[in-house]
Simulated scan of single mutants.
Amino acid sequence: MSDPGLGLDGFHHVALITSDYPRAKHFYVDILGAKVIDETLRVERESYKLDLLLPGGAQLELFSFPTPPPRVNRPEACGLRHLAFRCRDVDVARQVLETRGVTCEPVRVDELTGRRFTFFADPDGTPLELYEAG
């Protein structure tokens, strides 16, 4: 993807706010296997910023704030619907997550693409997807 006018060159990162920073850090680093790029304590904001690297080069920014409002929890609410992670084999990835204590939905098949996928959630309820890219 490259737009000659804007100079867009791809996807860089997604930023997430967590209600429990240590729990979220454990989930994304120890359970999902993201690598820590940088971790910053922003004392004046009572906030952490954690930069994480995912396989394939995309990044996640994890933020903590003292009392973030809860996420709107309707699947069709405006805004982020879900964050999808590409995987080679959705059955294997789902099994690994479940052995690590993460509950996943049953595997489904996308009626438009024929690709297999499942959903799960991070500790704050952010909807996440495993998408079998082939």
Rank of each mutant, 00 (worst) to 15 (best):
P4Y: 09
P4K: 05
G5F: 11
G5M: 15
D9A: 15
G10I: 11
G10N: 11
F11N: 11
F11Y: 14
H13C: 10
A15K: 09
A15G: 15
L16S: 02
I17Y: 04
T18I: 02
S19L: 02
R23S: 11
F27R: 01
F27G: 00
F27Q: 01
L32F: 10
V36C: 09
E39A: 11
L41W: 12
R42A: 14
E44V: 13
R45N: 09
R45C: 04
E46R: 15
L54V: 07
P55R: 14
G56C: 11
G57M: 04
A58C: 15
E61V: 08
L62K: 01
L62W: 00
F63M: 09
S64I: 03
P66T: 10
P68E: 14
R71P: 01
V72W: 06
V72G: 05
N73M: 08
C78Y: 05
H82K: 00
L83Y: 02
L83V: 12
A84R: 00
F85I: 04
A93W: 03
A93K: 01
V96E: 08
V96G: 01
T99A: 07
T99P: 05
T99H: 14
V102A: 08
C104N: 04
R108L: 13
R108P: 01
D110N: 14
D110M: 06
E111W: 06
E111V: 11
E111G: 13
E111L: 11
E111P: 02
E111Q: 14
L112H: 09
L112F: 11
T113G: 06
T113F: 11
T113L: 12
R115W: 10
R115E: 12
R116M: 03
T118A: 11
F120Q: 00
D122T: 05
P123V: 07
P123F: 09
T126N: 13
L128S: 03
E129T: 05
Y131W: 14
